[in-house]
Design a protein around this nucleic acid. Structure first.
Length: 503
RNA sequence: GCCGCGUUGGUCAAUCGGUUAAGACGCAUCCCUUUCACGGAUGAAUGAGGGGUUCGAUUCCCCUACGCGGUACCA
C-alpha cells in the first residue's frame, strides 16, 4: 500500500522569504495538490540565537499572498503538531538517547572553544572515525568517567557515530541515483548542548512523525543527505524514508553563485516575495509584491525557473500548474535569475487578466498617490484602456492618473519649438467647436477635430501631439480621442485653455 | 584540499541516438500606430575540451577543464 502524499516546507524564521524558498513552497504545494495530499508548514526554529521576531508571521503573510495555504502549520490545525520545532524539544532528546543506547551515537564533551582551536591547528580537521578516539567523548573515555560527567551535568552534545567505509545510496527524484562513501562524512552533532536538536536530527524525526512521504529541499542539502539516510536506517528503517528531491539553486544573474538579497540591492530588483524590514537593523528589503507584481505572475515565473512542461507554453495559472507540474521534469542544473523575464511574466498577466481582478489593488495605489476614485465604472474603463502598457501594477498610476486629475507637469518643451499663431488659432477654434458639441463621443470628437484642421489648412498630425500633451502632459497614453471622450467636455476644454496660457 | 552535484545561444530552455538543434526573454531591423505601448514579420546568436561506444552522437560511457554546493553545537 502506498503512503498518502504528505509534503512539508520547513523554513527557519530568520528573515524574509527568498524567491528560492518560495519556489520550494510552490513545488511542494503543486505536488501535494496534484496527488490529493497534504502540505505541511513546519517552523525550524532550533537555533535560538538566530531567531528573528516577525519572521514567522512574514512567512505566513507571504504564503497567503501567493495563494499557497498550508493544510497544517502552527496556525492551521493538524494532528501531527506541534509544528514548531522549539515546542518539540523533548521528542528529539528521546531519539538521540535511543541512538546512543543502540550504539549509533555517543556523547561528546568537547567544548566549542576546544574544537575551534583544533580546527585552527589542524586545517582539515574532521570529527570522525579517525579522530574521535582522541577527543573527549563516551567512546574514548571510560564508562565511569562518562557517568560522572553526565551526573555532573557537564555540557555535552550527542554525535552520530558514522560507520567507516560504507556506501550510502539513494534515489533522488530529480538526479537519479546518488551515492556517498561514509568515510567522507563526519560525526555530525545531533543534539546540541542546549538540548535542541540540529537540523539533521530534527528533519528525520519530524519527517517520520509527521508521516512525510516526499521531501523537497534545496541542493545545498545534498552533501548532508548521507547523514539523514543513516539516521533513517538507525531510527525508523530506510524503507519508511520519504522520497527525496534536491532542487537546483537559483543563481545570481551576473557571475556565478547563489542569488542573495545583496544581489537584488546591487542590481536593482527584488529577491524577497514581500517587503521585509529586519527588526534588529531596520534594514528594509523590497519585495515583488510591493514592486507591483501580481501573485499569479510571481508564481508563474517561479514555477518556470528550472521547470517546464515540455511544450511551448509559458503562461500557467496555479490551477494549470497543479495539473501539469512534475518533479521529474525539474532541471538538475541551477538557473540564473532573469529579472527581464520576470517583468515579462507580470506584463503578460496584467494584459491577459480581467481588469476587475486587480482593480482594487490599483485603486489602493491611486489612493496612496492622492487620487480619489469615485467612479468605479470609469476607473475600470480607464484601466482597460492602458493595461497593455503596464508592466507593473504601479505603472497604472502614471498611465491612468490623467483620466482623473489634470496633469501637474505639462511637457510644453515638446511642442513649443514648433508652435505658431496658426496652431494657436486652431486650438482657440477647437475650444469653441467642442463647446458647441452635444454628443461627446470618440468618433464625433475626431471628426470635428479633423474638419477643423482642414478648414484651417493644417495637418491633423501637427496638432494631434499638442492636443495629447495638453490632455495628458506627455508623449504617452492611449488614443487622444479616447482620452478626451473619457475626461469629459468641460475638463477637456479646461485643459486646452490652461495649456494655451503656457504657450 | 576533500566530497558531491552540474555544464545546449547573452539569459531561460526543447530534444529521451538520426532534426535545417524548437520556443521564450533580451537585442536589431521592418510593418502597424499622426504619441507611448500592444500586435505582426524578419534577423543575429547555442551543444566546454578530449577520448571512446555506435552505421550515426547534443543525447550513452570515461577523462580533463570550468562552475556551483557542502565541509559548524546554522539552517
Amino acid at each position: 500500500m502506498s503512503k498518502k502524499v504528505r509534503v512539508r516546507f520547513a523554513p527557519s524564521p530568520t528573515g524574509g522569504l527568498h524567491i528560492g524558498g518560495v519556489r520550494t513552497v510552490l513545488y511542494n504545494y503543486l505536488f501535494a495538490r496534484q496527488h490529493g495530499g497534504d502540505f505541511v508548514l513546519r517552523i525550524e526554529d532550533t537555533d535560538q540565537s538566530r531567531y528573528v521576531p516577525g519572521a514567522e508571521a512574514y512567512i505566513f503573510d507571504t504564503l497567503s499572498w501567493c495563494g499557497l495555504e498550508p493544510d497544517e502549520s502552527p496556525r492551521h490545525k493538524g494532528s501531527f503538531g506541534p509544528y514548531r520545532q522549539s515546542e518539540r524539544k523533548e521528542i528529539y532528546r528521546r531519539y538521540a538517547e535511543q541512538l546512543v543506547q543502540k550504539g549509533y551515537a555517543y556523547y561528546a564533551f568537547d567544548a566549542p572553544e576546544e574544537l575551534e582551536a583544533k580546527r585552527k591547528t589542524a586545517p582539515n580537521f574532521q570529527y570522525n572515525i579517525s579522530s574521535r578516539g582522541e577527543m573527549k567523548n563516551s567512546l574514548s573515555l571510560n564508562e565511569s568517567h562518562v557517568k560522572k560527567l553526565l551526573s555532573e551535568n557537564a555540557p555535552h552534545v550527542i554525535r552520530i557515530k558514522v560507520p567507516s567505509n560504507e556506501e550510502v545510496k539513494f534515489t533522488d527524484m530529480i538526479r537519479g541515483e546518488v551515492s556517498f562513501n561514509t568515510s567522507q562524512v563526519d560525526d555530525k552533532v545531533l543534539l546540541k548542548a542546549d538540548g535542541m536538536p540540529t537540523y539533521h536530527l530534527a528533519v528525520v524525526v519530524d519527517d517520520c512523525l509527521m508521516q512525510i512521504s516526499h521531501a523537497f529541499r534545496g541542493e545545498e542539502w545534498l552533501p548532508s543527505a548521507p547523514v539523514h539516510i543513516l539516521l533513517w536506517k538507525y531510527l525508523f528503517g530506510e524503507e519508511n524514508m520519504p522520497q527525496w528531491a534536491h532542487l537546483p539553486l537559483i543563481l545570481k544573474p551576473d557571475g556565478n553563485g547563489k542569488l542573495s538579497k545583496r544581489d537584488g540591492e546591487r542590481l536593482g530588483f527584488p529577491v524577497f516575495a514581500m517587503d521585509w524590514t529586519d527588526p534588529r537593523t531596520n534594514e528594509k528589503t523590497t519585495g515583488f509584491k510591493e514592486r507591483g507584481f501580481l501573485p499569479e505572475a510571481f508564481i508563474n515565473m517561479l514555477a518556470l525557473i528550472g521547470w517546464n512542461d515540455g511544450t511551448e507554453q509559458e503562461i500557467f495559472s496555479l490551477h494549470e500548474l497543479v495539473a501539469k507540474f512534475s518533479i521529474e521534469r525539474v532541471h538538475k542544473g541551477g538557473a540564473k535569475f532573469n529579472y527581464e523575464k520576470a517583468k515579462w511574466f507580470n506584463h503578460e498577466w496584467i494584459k491577459r487578466s480581467a481588469v476587475d481582478s486587480y482593480q482594487p489593488l490599483v485603486k489602493n495605489l491611486f489612493t496612496d498617490a492622492g487620487i480619489y476614485i469615485d467612479n468605479e465604472t470609469k476607473f475600470s474603463r480607464a484601466l482597460e484602456l492602458v493595461k497593455d502598457r503596464c508592466t507593473f501594477l504601479t505603472d497604472f498610476v502614471q498611465q491612468a492618473s490623467f483620466f482623473f486629475k489634470a496633469p501637474e507637469n505639462i511637457d510644453i518643451a515638446v511642442i513649443k519649438p514648433k508652435w505658431d499663431e496658426k496652431k494657436n488659432l486652431f486650438f482657440i477654434e477647437l475650444i469653441r467647436a467642442y463647446s458647441l458639441m452635444n454628443s461627446w463621443q470618440h468618433d464625433a470628437l475626431e471628426k470635428e477635430f479633423k474638419e477643423l484642421a482642414a478648414v484651417n489648412e493644417i495637418k491633423p498630425g501637427d496638432v494631434l501631439l499638442p492636443f495629447r500633451i495638453m490632455l495628458v502632459g506627455g508623449k504617452f497614453g492611449p488614443g487622444v480621442f479616447d482620452i478626451a471622450a473619457m475626461v469629459g467636455k468641460d475638463e477637456t476644454i479646461r485643459r486646452i485653455k490652461q495649456a494655451l496660457q503656457l504657450l
